[in-house]
Each structure stands twice: as C-alpha cells, then as structure tokens.
Simulated scan of single mutants.
Amino acid sequence: MLTLYGVPGWGSAISEVMLTMAEIPYHFVDVNGFDNPGPQHDVLEQINPLCQVPTLRLDDGSVMTESAAIALMILDTHPHLAPPIGTSQRALFQRLLVWLVANVYPTFTYADYPERFASDAPEQLKNSCIAYRKTLYQWLDQQLVGPYALGDNVTLLDAYIVVIRTWGPRPAWFTENTPRLSAIADHIAQREELQTVLRSNDLLTAQNAN
C-alpha cells in the first residue's frame, strides 16, 4: 500500500483527494510540525531530504513528490480523471495543472516563511505575495467552466480547487471575488466518495462557512 506523508489541510490534502478520486488505497502519516526542527522533521527528512509534503512512498519503496507529478502518475492507470488526449480540454488541464504549482505554490512558500527570504523586510514580502496570489486566483476563476473545473466531468484538477479554497485568503474572499471557483469547490465537496477525506482535512468546514 502507498504511504502518504503530510499534514491535514496542507498541500498533501490535494494528493489525498486525488488518490481517493482514483480509489487508490493509501496509508496516511501525519507529520505535523515537519517544517520546524523536531521528531516530525527528522521522520520526513529520512524519506525526503527536501522535507516537503506531500511525500508519497510507493509500493516498491521509491518516493514520489510534487502534487502535479503524483497527478500524472495517477493518470497512467486512471486516465478517466483527465480530459481525453488530443482535446482542447486536455491542453487546458495540462496548462492549469502546471500553472497552479508553478505560480500559486511559491506565493505560500515566501509568504508563510518571509523571514527566510527577506530578513530585512519580511512583512513587505508577505503582503506582496498575498496580494499577487489574489490576482492569480482571479485569473484562474476566468479559466474554469463549471460545474467542475473543466465542465461536466470531474478531473484531478478539481482536487486542487476544493483544497485551495480553504487556504488564504479564505473562503469568504473566494465567494466574493472568485464566485466560479467557489461554486465549483462547493460542488466537488458534495461528492459522496470524498466526504471522509474532506472531513479529515477540515475541508467541509470551508463549505459551511460560505
């Protein structure tokens, strides 16, 4: 069985939702506190020297990291969780999958730990990243279709939507400023097969807060 190292509600939640969508069993190991010196950091570092979540240990003992890479691995055996190859929707799926991790993720890296990157102006860096992230989400809102991210069929991209809506700048902001993204997240959160994983990551709380 796969072993996923992560923290409830963090980026690992996206991989949990994706694995659940694909009905792939996994064992979850909570490494809350890994981002500071301590036993959880030591546990994760032994598996992934970069000490990041998600970290996925595969059945053969090898390690897979990066949520987009995990998505592509899942699609190897569950191709129905992305639009058909050769379609314009497939191209959009690929674009947005990489866009999310290349553009949105760094704003959290720098805003959550600004003192590591701008010790002379951490608050300025934090505020700038948060403001920029909002513009990214507003652009993303215009790319989404509904009722799921790319139309009538759920894809692995929807795992990102339902999770990121709970992150900063929080659900109320998404409802007001990115209504399409917010509505899609609500729609995904209603899927019966996702209730357990969404609840364990406190992702249903966001839906109720809207």
Rank of each mutant, 00 (worst) to 15 (best):
E66A: 12
S67Q: 09
A68G: 13
A68E: 10
A69Y: 01
L72V: 15
M73E: 15
D76Q: 14
D76W: 00
H78M: 03
P79W: 08
P79F: 07
L81P: 08
P84V: 12
P84N: 11
Q89L: 15
R90A: 10
L92G: 07
L92T: 07
Q94N: 11
Q94S: 08
V98R: 09
W99P: 05
V101Q: 09
A102F: 04
N103Q: 11
N103P: 09
T107W: 13
F108H: 15
T109L: 13
A111M: 03
Y113D: 06
R116Q: 12
F117P: 00
A118N: 12
P122M: 05
Q124W: 02
L125A: 01
K126R: 15
K126M: 04
K126H: 14
S128D: 07
L136E: 08
Y137N: 02
W139T: 10
D141F: 07
D141H: 11
Q142W: 00
Q143P: 01
G146L: 13
G146K: 14
P147K: 08
P147G: 08
A149R: 10
L150E: 01
L150H: 01
L150I: 06
G151F: 08
D152M: 07
D152V: 00
N153E: 15
T155H: 13
T155K: 06
L156G: 11
L156C: 03
D158N: 05
D158Y: 02
I161C: 02
V163N: 05
V163C: 12
I164V: 04
W167Q: 06
G168Q: 14
G168E: 13
P169K: 10
R170V: 12
R170S: 08
R170C: 04
W173C: 07
W173A: 09
E176K: 12
E176L: 11
R180I: 14
S182K: 05
D186W: 00
I188G: 01
R191Q: 08
E192P: 03
E193C: 04
L194N: 00
L194W: 00
T196I: 02
V197E: 01
